[in-house]
Design a protein around this nucleic acid. Sequence first.
DNA 1: GTGACTTTGTGCATCGGTTCACAAAGGGAT
DNA 2: ATCCCTTTGTGAACCGATGCACAAAGTCAC
Lengths: 225, 225
Amino acid sequence: MKSPSQPRDRGIPEATVARLPLYLRALHGMAERGVATVSSEDLAVAAGVNSAKLRKDLSHLGSYGTRGVGYEVEYLVYQISRELGLTQDWAVAIVGVGNLGRALANYGGFVSRGFRVAALVDADPEVVGDTIAGLNVEHIDELEAVIKRRGVSIVVLATPAEAAQDVCDRVIDAGVTSILNFAPVVLSVSDGVDVRKVDLSIELQILAFHEQRKAGGPLMAVDGQ
Amino acid sequence: MKSPSQPRDRGIPEATVARLPLYLRALHGMAERGVATVSSEDLAVAAGVNSAKLRKDLSHLGSYGTRGVGYEVEYLVYQISRELGLTQDWAVAIVGVGNLGRALANYGGFVSRGFRVAALVDADPEVVGDTIAGLNVEHIDELEAVIKRRGVSIVVLATPAEAAQDVCDRVIDAGVTSILNFAPVVLSVSDGVDVRKVDLSIELQILAFHEQRKAGGPLMAVDGQ
DNA sequence: GTGACTTTGTGCATCGGTTCACAAAGGGAT
DNA sequence: ATCCCTTTGTGAACCGATGCACAAAGTCAC
């Protein structure tokens, strides 16, 4: 039998998790502008979602609002940050320091809160030893050692497609269970490993699909909409 | 009379559209390896999805398989390409030629099929006039003119967050209705404009959430209430 | 041609997520 | 304290997507 009195439902829907960062960003902006409290309606507009959805999302974290008033910005920032695990520091390694990897290393935005680029790794001897964004690029042979030495728990894969699965296997062997994959391949991983994929090509193709349809489609099928 | 291969239902589910590029990539790989036909099961494995889902997805395009045999690779490549609008050439403009914009301009992968980087635009006088990936960087003042001159129909936004909404408004005014946004802001656009968002920071935060949970985070927090 | 075998295409149950709509809860004014 | 007004938190209907399971449709061997 399980205890029925667990106050917080730890099973937060995936769709909600994906929106929390959005709310967090909007809240940060409000905090900077000195806003003290915000209604679900206003926050929803800022985050580009429906207010009922926002309230339901937040209700999964707990009851942090005040009826008739709204949510206290600072408090909500803290609660969401905590829920997302941003109150601790995450060491991120970027593997593959080509155009994209370099851009990611230099991209200040994503390091801002909670995340820290702790290592750069590449296979190309031309690049190994270079300093990029203040970090020494290390050789792929050192991959496992670097991961352990720096306490890396999240790996960003920015390698060519061919190398991605191999690097993926190795970082998982080294204990990493969170991977952000920019390589255009479907990674196969064991259970318990989270992979998120960012694929520019796919995004463009989805846009093209809709664009084509707007332009009249392959058949010039004109349907009411 | 029969009209077998005409996809009757032009309303292809969004979830299906998002997977078609995945199938297409797997099929291209197979075509290169000389595979002539493929079963839904094999293709599903290659694309990392369930085979029933794959069949249902493909059935939205029409009845392009042969029972007892599978799908002809070349034919399916063509049909999916056509559906996605990849049989035509899309001119893409990248606005914002910082680290990321530069990486995108040089990233061969996404130009491969159907897409062509037709223009680079930036506001920084230091960058304007430079040649990147064989293209001249043009000034943001020329934005509308460039879009029209080059027939740009898809814009990639790689500007700082502050500039994104402004550029977005301008490209929409210039007739663009498909935008791929890398800036960490929620763009507000009128109906009929498609915006897709790629946000590194959000992806990392989602990973951190799950990582924290794996690490045993759920239990200890006992707050009063 | 016939029968055995393979694989598609889809009906159906199910599930997760979204949206509506409203009772409950709180603040502020008088 | 009481009433009114605002806003939350959530029950319930709804909607799209998923996955099972199987009949229909085809191939292949003989």
